[in-house]
Design a protein around this nucleic acid. Structure first.
Lengths: 188, 188
DNA sequence: GTCTATAAGAGGATAGAC
DNA sequence: GTCTATCCTCTTATAGAC
């Protein structure tokens, strides 16, 4: 009977992953400052010192925890774009990955998270702006679309505003569609 | 020659106001957690212990610092509303009062600030929703308008996104107007 | 009334035992 | 490799001197 090959390296990776998951969860819930190494360790069921052993600092742990690909919008052009934006928003409202929530949660109070967020959002804005070639100020329009999504997501996921909490995601998407169209359309 | 009547009470009020201003400034810049009593005292040019003497705790200082009336939209109805929203946004982009910025800066990481923000935003949503009697889901639409303004304000004032930083406020307002109209209009 | 001194506690990081 | 013990810093808050 073959022994299952759970090497030390495997165990280590498993533990590391568990720590990372716990960290993401707590960072998403409380932000960078209020999340302690001790709390992360407690949730992961390990010793606090082990967390420091694996990741070298709290900052490093955070950096790795929020390292999630933000799913850049594929470069379709024109009308399909609005559909795609709405789809992305629907996903967002359905539940953003913890890594992304952690970044959003911390971006207003932690400078490093702010840099990360700025870079990510600027990239998305550039990408969307490039898909709007027929209008004036494509980048500005793209920025307004993205910040709208950020605002709605914050209101829904991070603040839990009454009027948004109960609303079904597809109803929100339906209402936002014409707004996005208006933002991305040339004046008629 | 009349002696200027600067009573002890007057001096005290002046000092208190200076502390409050410094606090607002720092809370708006760094958020609740990263603002220290010591830093507030330093900026105000007083002793840290004095800050504690006047306000009883850091929390109390914060509460008083963010106590700004959020300028509820007057209850006009229908089309004037969009104009008013745009005007408010224009003001926001021109520079929100520090008290408001402090609240926004902290609302994602400090539960008390989150409660305050939720209450304020819910109130504004209710007020705007009440001014949209002819459409379905007026509260949801109002929430989307408000969260859009929050998102744009965050991108502009708190994150300083490239594409928004350079844009003149009235250009932003012009682009957002049709989006707000779309959000507040019944389907045609 | 204002400041000095310090208590009290939290939390990140480290060294070394096992 | 994992945990114990501890260090060190920072910060709020308080007590008491001047």
């Amino acid at each position: 009977m073959t022994v299952p090959h759970i090497s030390r390296a495997d165990r280590r990776r498993a533990t590391e992953a568990r720590i990372l998951d716990s960290a993401r969860e707590l960072f998403a819930e409380r932000g960078f400052d209020r999340t302690t190494i001790r709390a992360v360790a407690a949730v992961a069921g390990v010793d606090p010192a082990l967390v420091m052993q694996y990741f070298r600092s709290k900052r490093e742990l955070f950096t790795q925890a929020v390292q999630v690909s933000p799913a850049l919008p594929a470069d379709t052009d024109g009308d399909a774009l609005v559909d795609q934006l709405i789809a992305t928003l629907g996903l967002n409202l359905g539940g953003l990955p913890d890594g992304m929530l952690a970044m959003m949660r911390s971006m207003l109070t932690d400078p490093a998270a702010a840099d990360h967020a700025r870079a990510t959002l600027d990239r998305q804005i550039g990408s969307i702006g490039a898909a709007l070639p027929e209008v004036e100020d494509p980048e500005l329009r793209a920025a307004l679309v993205i910040t709208t999504m950020v605002g709605v997501t914050i209101g829904h996921q991070l603040l839990g505003l009454e009027a948004l909490r109960d609303a079904p995601a597809d109803r929100i998407a339906t209402l936002l569609r014409p707004a996005f169209k208006a933002l991305t359309e040339p004046p008629h």
